[in-house]
Design a protein around this nucleic acid. Structure first.
Lengths: 96, 96
DNA sequence: CATCCATTTCGATGTGCGTCGAAATATCCG
DNA sequence: CGGATATTTCGACGCACATCGAAATGGATG
């Protein structure tokens, strides 16, 4: 169950997301995760551009910001965007 | 007439805005500018916290991201948020 | 012009973080 | 088990940038 309602972000989480989005490459990764229903292992575009270590780092940042969720299934890692968190971020942003 | 329609952001501008928003203090400044209709000289909260040099720097960043507009009137600097740009940013974000 | 105040510029400093290579760890398959 | 492939961790490096103090600029006013 992916569930989990999220209506308000802590200041800390808000900052984490803002930081996560600020890096173009990380944002590109996030976009791909959002596009795919569930993102399989090494199917990220960035695999051709960036080193595995860096990708892993970015994904870690994204998960720690609670923007994406990781589900390991064998050697595949399924990545899914947490829409609720993303929406919360947008909503908080738009109330500038 | 403050005018100026802005429907689409260049990648460069998008990144600049994302970066600008990523810094908590700078975002706080932006919020105050957004709140006040026109923000007078040294009426920023941050004047008690941050050095003038730093404030000036942040405002420069914000203007270079075209997020705020500066109008000098004597020794006062009027700061206004460019809603069109901000909305464009939000819109672009939400289409993840 | 001289003084005052607000803002900017400049230069220096410290730090956060994106990046990588290499080693460690994990997972699968034969 | 042993080899192959995928991901993570670790350590180091370099750069971008937030921050400041001090000096410079600019505009108002006496």
């Amino acid at each position: 169950m992916p569930v989990a309602k999220k209506n308000r972000l802590t200041q800390e989480q808000f900052d984490a997301i803002a930081r996560a989005v600020a890096d173009p490459r990380r944002f590109a990764i996030l976009k791909q995760i959002a596009a795919q229903p569930t993102m399989g292992c090494g199917s990220l575009e960035e695999h051709k551009t960036i080193s595995p270590a860096t990708i892993s780092h970015h994904i870690k940042e994204l998960t720690e910001a609670e923007l994406v969720e990781v589900a390991r299934e064998g050697r595949c890692a399924h990545l899914t965007l947490r829409r609720d968190v993303w929406d919360a971020y947008l909503s908080q942003l738009s109330s500038l």
